[in-house]
Amino acid sequence: MDLLQLGSHSFSSRLILGTGKFSSAAVMLQAVRASGAQLVTVALRRFNREQAEDDLFGPLSAIEGVTLMPNTSGASTAAEAVRAAHIARELSGSPFIKVEIHPNPQHLMPDPIETFEAARILAKEGFLVMPYITADPVLAKRLEEVGCAAVMPLGSAIGSGQGLASAAMIELIIRESSIPVIVDAGLRSPSEAAHAMEMGCGAVLVNSAVAVAGNPPEMAEAFAEAVAAGRKAFRAGLMQKSGSAIATSPLTAFLGVKA
């Protein structure tokens, strides 16, 4: 069976779903079910007694086969991310942590230096570290060397829907990596997710594209199908590109016309 391997954990679904920006918790839960995702991201927030629906731990844990992957969103330094990871593990019991350190709210680009430091510390502590990074092959390799379970380069800016703007760099990362490469952020359409999988990504992480779709559960299903198709195509082996036409029909003489 073709499984996504993250540390000692394996998953049959290669679609990871984010839970932010949905119109309600009920719609989000429907989308999670429709996506078949087995890894789902969540964020830490202050408890608010006026907004009890914010607390997603119970409802998400009740979905069979779902493992939580908390993120460190809100952290702007390695120390803050490490602290958030400790709190998240206390709360979820999950070994997964998405290290996400973006100090500038204007572009939300991840800080490579703080991300590397947090990943190094957390991997040493036994977390399955999934760092969100710019599509930088050198950084990706360094993160692999310190024991990350995967690397998660961005396709384009978070929530931008600009798709696989960094496709060429992601291909370089895939070529060099021995751990799964997961495109995280920027995807807008299922075809982009299929493209990422055809390139050889281990999985894709999608949030906004599903959360703000006209029909989130249906879009979740569409992404799941695209991810499965892209993965199948990658395994089947894509044909080589050619600079010129190569005939698919015989070009021998026929009906008196010479080839």
Binding site: G18, T19, G20, K21, F22, A25, M28, T41, V42, A43, L44, R45, R46, F47, D54, D55, L56, F57, L60, L68, P70, N71, S73, I87, A88, L91, S92, I158, A185, L205, N207, S208
Partner: peptide, 10 residues
């Protein structure tokens, strides 16, 4: 005292 829960996030 800080009380934290899991909320939606990507």
């Amino acid at each position: 005292v800080e009380l934290l829960v899991f909320a939606g996030g990507g």
